[in-house]
Structures are given as structure tokens and as C-alpha cells.
Amino acid sequence: MSDLLETDGERLLTAVRALLQRKGVVTEEEIAERRAATDNASPGQGARMVAKAWLDPAYRELMLSDGTKAAEALGIPMRGMPPLGVLENAPKLHHLVVCTLCSCYPRAVLGYPPFWYKSAAYRARAVRDPRALLASEWKTVIPDDVTLRVVDSTADYRWMVLPMRPAGTEGWDEARLTAIVREGDMIGVTIPSV
């Protein structure tokens, strides 16, 4: 069997799909539907949640107490998804999310995990030397008087960061705020700025 598993991935996929389809286990339509649903999730969804939390204290409360409900409140599909937890940054506390065991990622609200998130280097360095990692790879400097809390996503929850609203955005509306929130801000490798 081991030789079979060493077959090139593309050939394995083609063969496995053909077999599953012939046996009626999985249809091509089901795969296409699933793919479309996954392709639809993107960091723009998480960004909408962040912007709304910046403007609406009640929504922020909901987001911090139940991320799944907060996502659903904005029409983001969460059925069948792992529970979403939200980690709030503060003037003296910065969060950074990693999955050292595999690549658990809040896909429902951020989409597919980026390449770097899945890399061995990120997974190794994020827990052990996060300040140097952020400074060297993202030019993100966490001041010494700010506690850095690394969140290793090891089990059933998925975690996203609620960053602090940057100065200079006073009076901005939700759409304008949404546009400045990037993928990395919601994992903690970057900080929103204007």
C-alpha cells in the first residue's frame, strides 16, 4: 500500500475522484458546490466584522462573547464550521494566532489560509520568538511594554484577532473602515494603519 500512497498527488486525486464518483460516494456537483462555498469566504468578511465592532459597542460585545453569532449576524455562513473565538487587542496586549500542529485557521471569516501561515518556519517561530518573527518578516514592532500573547490554535475553536482602531480614522464610516483591515491584521502579524 505504501507505494500507492507515494503516487504523485495529481494522479491520486484523479483516480480517487473517479472511483468515488463511480461508487456514488461523492458527486462532481458536490465538489463544485463545496469549492464555490470555500472560494467565497475571504478576509473581506472578517474585515466587515472588525469595522462594525469599531463602530458599534453592542456588536463588539457580541463578537467577543460569541464570534460565531457575530459572523452570522452579518450573513456569513457558519453552519458546519468550528466555533469562532475573537481575541481583542488593547493598548498593552497584542495577540498573534498560529497553529503549530497543523494549520487551523478561521476559514469561515478569512478564507483559505495563506501560504506563510502553513509554513514550518511560521509554525516554529511564532510561539518561541514571536517578536523577532514579526519584526523581521512583517516589520511589525511590538513595544516592550506591550504583552504579546501567542494563541496556539490546537483544538476545536478557530481564532481571529480584533485589532485596535488606528488613529486618524475618526468619523469614518463602516465601508471605509472595512477597506483598511487586512488579512494579517486579523491574525496579528500586522497592525491596521492609515
Binding site: 498527488g9 486525486l13 470555500t38 472560494d39 483559505y112 518556519a121 516554529a124 520568538d129
Partner: peptide, 26 residues
Amino acid sequence: FMCEAVDVEPHELTEFDRQVDALRGV
């Protein structure tokens, strides 16, 4: 891996990647 650089460039997923992902999901 402590001295290995992180490749932070975006890598577009291939058709193969998306199909495997979807198959796992189903």
C-alpha cells in the same frame, strides 16, 4: 526552523489545491 525565513509572498492556490480542499470538505 528557528532561523528559516518565512515566505510571506502570496501564493495563488492551484486548481489541484482547490479540488483537494473541496473533496476533503465533502
